[in-house]
Design a protein around this nucleic acid. Structure first.
Length: 292
DNA sequence: GGCCAGGAGAAAA
DNA sequence: TTTTCTCATGGC
């Protein structure tokens, strides 16, 4: 990957890039705040910034407006450029023709390293819900309680609220945003964090099993949502979220129809090992593409 | 109008 | 311990 920078337009250009497809990265269900502007152009809120990603071809991407320092100190990790996806894909498709097809369909997927609090709340909202509604609720939450960032092309952008900004938000306030019965889960999760009962910074130091156990102690976070948080916010690639789409594709191609969720998880852990989470993203994307 | 969506908690068996 | 029921809400 070659990095160049044009300070006059605050634009980083990445060339000779491998394993990067904006459409796949932003629509594989890991993030809810990136929107397609037109084909190959996505705009998203990252922290307190609004960032444009334009994919010129398979190996070239422009990112703006950013400072070069911010790219190296934050976005390089956010886009997971430290991870060698070529190597992982080779390991995953070895002796696995199903995975070979899944990887072929989503070969430009990367797992974003996102902020734990935003991901925790976002995935509490995601339970038994669909992606457009999840995105709408998160947008409403940011719009009402986050900070205004800027406007671009008739649309206003707001940061995701901090726990402090949600301190006085009531269960009824959450309900008004359209999150349904998940209102109380969000409320209690925020209060747990504010009163120090749960410290997201401390969780980073835990082993993956203890991390999952800690997350599942929050009401509204079960096995699947915990694995999403572990994978998308804590960068632990061994986590394998078993959601409805992954269940469908695993039962269609790998396992019997009556396999329990727990058994799907242990099968994935045994077969995909430390890279199960990346395998899961290929499978999720492929399953949706096949409309299983 | 029932079924589904990146499920989980509580009740019932 | 495992299975079943219920929970908001909008799109189809």
């Amino acid at each position: 990957m070659n990095v160049s920078y044009d300070a006059s337009i605050q634009q980083v250009t990445l060339e000779n890039l491998k394993d990067f497809n904006a459409e796949q990265i932003f629509t594989c269900g890991q993030c809810f705040r990136w929107l397609e502007q037109n084909s190959n152009h996505y705009r998203g809120v990252v922290g307190s910034r609004v960032i444009d990603v334009v994919q010129l071809d398979d190996n070239t991407v422009e990112i703006s407006p950013v400072e070069l320092e911010y790219f190296y100190e934050y976005l390089n990790h956010y886009f997971d450029f430290e991870t060698d996806y070529q190597e992982i894909k080779q390991l995953l498709i070895k002796d696995d023709s199903i995975m070979e097809k899944a990887v072929e369909q989503g070969k430009g997927i990367r797992i974003l390293n996102q902020e734990p609090f935003e991901i925790l709340i976002s995935f509490i909202i995601s339970g038994n819900n669909n992606i457009p509604r999840i995105m709408k609720a998160i947008d409403g939450l940011s719009r009402k309680y986050g900070d205004y960032i800027k406007s671009a092309e008739e649309k206003d952008y707001y940061s995701f609220p901090t726990p402090e900004q949600l301190r006085d938000v009531s269960i009824e306030d959450y309900r008004a945003l359209g999150v349904g019965y998940r209102d109380k889960y969000i409320y209690h999760a925020v209060q747990n964090i504010l009163n120090g009962e749960m410290d997201l910074k401390d969780l980073e130091n835990l082993e993956i099993d203890q991390l999952k156990q800690a997350l599942m102690s929050v009401k509204g976070i079960g096995s699947k949502i915990a694995d999403c948080i572990i994978l998308f916010a804590f960068g632990r690639k061994a986590a394998f979220p078993v959601d409805t789409w992954v269940k469908k594709i695993m039962k269609a191609f790998y396992l019997d129809d009556d396999t329990k969720d727990r058994e799907i998880l242990s099968f994935a852990t045994e077969n995909f090992g430390d890279h199960a989470g990346i395998a899961q993203q290929y499978l999720f994307y492929y399953s949706r593409k096949l409309k299983l």
